[in-house]
Every structure is written in C-alpha cells, then in structure tokens.
C-alpha cells in the first residue's frame, strides 16, 4: 500500500539527510525504523506526509504519488495518514476532547471547527477512543494538566480518530519512562492490529522494536542498510546499523550510544 521509491532529501545546509530510500509496506504491516541519531529516521517519517518536503523521489500511497500533490490534494491525502509525535504535540490550552477532535478537522468546515460543532459521529468515535485509551474521565481536562503518558494517549486517540490507513509514529516513547513506554507501545500495536492500520514506528530503543514489531528496518546515514524480520536482528545487524560496539555486554540497557 505504501511504496517509497528513491527518496532523497537534502536540507539547505549539511549533507544528504536521505540518500535514495526504497521501502515497501503492505496493508497491516507494522515496521520499526531504527538507526543512530542523525540517520534520517525523523526526516523519512516526515517526508511521507510532507511535513518535510522531499527533494526527489516518489511516495506512492494506495497508488497516489504524495510528493506530486498540490496543497488541496495533499490535505486530502493527509486525512488518511495519522501521526504521533515524540513530545505529544498537543495544543496545551485546549481540552483533551478538543485535541482529539482536531484529528477530524479536515472533515469539517471552518465554521464547524470554530464553534466546536463536530458531527455526532465523530464525537461518539472520539469518546469511545478516549475510553479505549483509558482517558474516559478526562474529556474536558486541559491537556497541560496531564502526565506524559496520558498526553501520548491523547495523541494516539487524535491520530486514530482520523481513521487512517497509515500511522506514522515519530519516537512515540522517547520522552516517557520505561514502564509507560511499554504500555504506550502495547496500546498502539493493539489498536493498529485491531483496526488493520499500517504503521511506521521510528524508534530509539531497539529492545522495544524487537518486542512489539515484526519487521525492523535499519537506517544509517540516509540509506536503508537492513530490512528483516524482527526475530532475525542480531549483533551483526546492530553493528551494520549502528557501527562497531560490544553488543553482547551492552544489550539491552545502553543500546542508544552514538
């Protein structure tokens, strides 16, 4: 359903961030994107919904090349791509419910969004999603009153309210403590499987990637250097992705040294 062909990104300053990335994902696939800091993981994820403009290459989603869309078409395409961020990216001064409903902005008119007058269908969906992520009691709480884990749950609900075909997760657990990180990962993976969504999870911690995904893609210096089943990830693969290191003694506690 998603096919990335020869994707290149060059920022105004600095070297190539993405240097010819090719990647194919089938419906329902959940893949983890790992790699050292600066490998281009974040850039890759952001190129897919064009929060970052790709320099060249194609991004085919369900047969449409996202990289060639005009503004209006891009908005339409973004409707079907959910995104979850590292720092949750909630609007702090809006309530939990308003944040979740903002996932449906593309489906309502300007006046409806101004008056917070969303169709009943979306409201029901939002409320049941909030129940599902365990925030049923926080509907009208302001987002800045929540803990990190709770905020990320709001972020998940916002992304899923879009009913996306594809979910992009940019370091969803990097700002959370280890226990919350696992809970969040489990929640995301359960929901994604339940709703048969494809997901690309850009993640720092190899351990979490191995635990929760079936396929791992390794990115290094803007190129894909590894793409295998999660079970096949071994020390050789880690060396290939991250470089030389005594992986046996270090794993899994300190797998993110640069």
């Amino acid at each position: 359903m998603l096919e990335i062909i020869d994707l290149v990104k060059k920022y105004d300053s600095g070297p190539l961030a993405l240097d010819g990335v090719n990647l194919k994902i089938e419906a329902g696939d959940i893949i983890a994107l790992i790699g050292p800091s600066g490998a281009g993981k974040s850039t890759l994820v952001r190129c897919i919904n064009r929060l970052v403009e790709p320099t060249s290459g194609k991004i085919m989603l369900n047969g449409v090349d996202i990289s060639s869309l005009n503004k209006k078409e891009l908005r339409e395409a973004r409707k079907n791509i959910g995104m979850i961020f590292q720092e949750y990216a909630l609007v702090e001064r809006l309530s939990v419910m308003e944040n979740v409903l903002s996932g449906r902005l593309a489906s309502v008119s300007f006046w409806q969004s101004l008056r917070r007058n969303f169709p009943q269908k979306y409201i029901s969906e939002a409320l049941s999603l909030l129940d599902r992520v365990g925030l049923g009691d926080y509907v009208d709480t302001r987002a800045d009153q929540l803990s990190g884990g709770q905020r990320q749950r709001v972020g998940i609900a916002r992304a899923l309210l879009q009913k996306p075909d594809l979910l992009l997760l940019d370091e969803p657990t990097a700002s959370l403590d280890p226990k919350t990180a696992r809970q969040i990962m489990r929640l995301v993976v359960d929901l994604v499987q339940e709703k048969n969504i494809s997901a690309i999870i850009n993640i720092h911690e190899v351990k979490l990637a191995e635990l929760f995904t079936k396929r791992i893609v390794g990115l290094r210096e803007g190129r894909i250097v590894y793409d295998e089943e999660a079970a096949k990830l071994d020390t050789d693969a880690l060396t290939l992705i991250y470089g030389e290191e005594d992986w046996e003694s270090e794993r899994p506690a300190e797998d993110e040294s640069e």
Binding site: L51, S102, L105
Partner: peptide, 18 residues
C-alpha cells in the same frame, strides 16, 4: 502542535484556529 494539526490535513484557517 502546529505541525501535528497540519498533519491531520487541516486547512490553513483551521491550523490558525486550533
């Protein structure tokens, strides 16, 4: 948060609003 709202496909006016 502004990026996040853009990413949902919201229009410019809606990004401004939310």
């Amino acid at each position: 948060p502004i990026e996040a709202i853009k990413a949902t496909g919201a229009s410019k006016a809606q990004v401004f609003l939310y």
